[in-house]
Design a protein around this nucleic acid. Structure first.
Lengths: 208, 208
DNA sequence: ACTTTTGCACTGACCAGTCAGTTCAAAGAT
DNA sequence: ATCTTTGAACTGACTGGTCAGTGCAAAAGT
């Protein structure tokens, strides 16, 4: 049953070629010929393995997000097993997110670029995929609130979305505009924000 | 000499048509014919007013980011004049960012989608435009550190990027996936994060 | 034997950009 | 007042090129 191994390898090569090109140029600007060439494969092979260009893209998205949410979940779980607090788990997830993005920058870029588009064929695929990721963070936040570790005034869905966004954008920005910084620098800055040592904890003033 | 007024109006219509379409579909997937039709103008008019499709897009970017950074700067200044702290100013900028995105969601979406792409013609335009925005936040952070209001351990460039990202992504996510929430809800969640009432201020643990 | 990949020619749709011609408001002429 | 001219603004049919997807016979891999 290693006939499927060969196919698997071809599909993997196509994913890797497609993710880079689409991240750089966008979906429409990337041609199937380019993808095939970069993967070192004939054009016909692309169509032997995927029904169409957009199907290739959708499967690529599912594949990548699977890796990301698995990595986040694993980080949270490990932190739990080591007896860390829930805030520690959040911190561990931030780091896991950064490591992932460091390893697969193209995928992250493409994900951010496509996530909020309306009217596209794969919009529903992306919605599913987003929920899967944000849900991991929501679960930890909810557990932290229930155990009394975090205040009840926290809005779990909004805070989860904001945290995910913070990590995503900070990491992309780091890679694109401040590549000289280390992963630890970035992690440190985000930790400070999460742990509340930026705003200093003054009470909310009714704003001007 | 109101001929230039007419041109101005045409260009404005083209900006509005283009920003929506490109946000929905992306730059390459949007045709010049579509833009012209949506603007209620002939295709030739597009080329009478702009040298090419990408030039139209670049000028659109400059136009939009001008509005955004002006709005942020104004919010920070007003907060200062009213005798607020620097953290208040940051909070006011968060709100200004949310209001802007609420008003021009298409522009924001398009900005986020294109910002981290490499290899594109307008990449340098975008870099300039990003710096302009992030710089506003950096200035306030730096002032807060200098006045002793914020700790010196804060990494200004990274924190500024993270804050901008947090607002951008939280707002887009709000519009796309949680539209039933109010602007105040979102602002509240982000304020809590900024003011450090999420993580509870435990010391950093050397992570697992 | 069978699955998978190759190479390559082909088609039909689509699209950025062009250009010869039209419109019209206002400046100038009578 | 009325006519003529000017030129900026606009129009839309057309062109040349590009690209997703097809078809298929031969080769390679397992």
């Amino acid at each position: 049953m290693e006939s499927s191994t060969r196919r698997q390898a071809t599909r993997q090569k196509l994913y890797e070629a497609a993710v880079t090109l689409i991240a750089e140029q966008g979906f429409s600007a990337t041609t199937v010929d380019e993808i095939a060439e970069r993967a070192g494969v004939a054009k016909g092979t692309v169509y032997y393995n995927f029904a169409s260009k957009s199907v290739l893209f959708e499967e690529l998205l599912r594949h990548g997000v699977g890796l990301l949410s698995a990595s986040l979940r694993e980080a949270a779980q490990k932190s739990d097993e080591n007896g860390g607090s829930k805030v520690d788990a959040l911190d561990a997830m931030i780091r896991a997110g950064l490591v992932f993005i460091d390893e697969y920058p193209a995928f992250t870029q493409l994900y951010v670029a496509e996530l909020w588009r309306t009217n596209r064929a794969w919009q529903s695929t992306l919605a599913v995929v987003r929920n899967e990721t944000v849900a991991v963070v929501e679960d930890v936040l909810r557990a932290a609130v229930e155990s009394g570790e975090l205040s009840e005034e926290i809005d779990v869905p909004l805070t989860a979305a904001a945290l995910v966004g913070m990590v995503l954008v900070a990491a992309l920005d780091w890679q694109a505009f401040q590549p000289e910084r280390s992963l630890d620098d970035v992690h440190g800055a985000l930790s400070l924000l999460l742990q509340g040592r930026v705003g200093g904890g003054q009470p909310l003033t009714g704003k001007a």
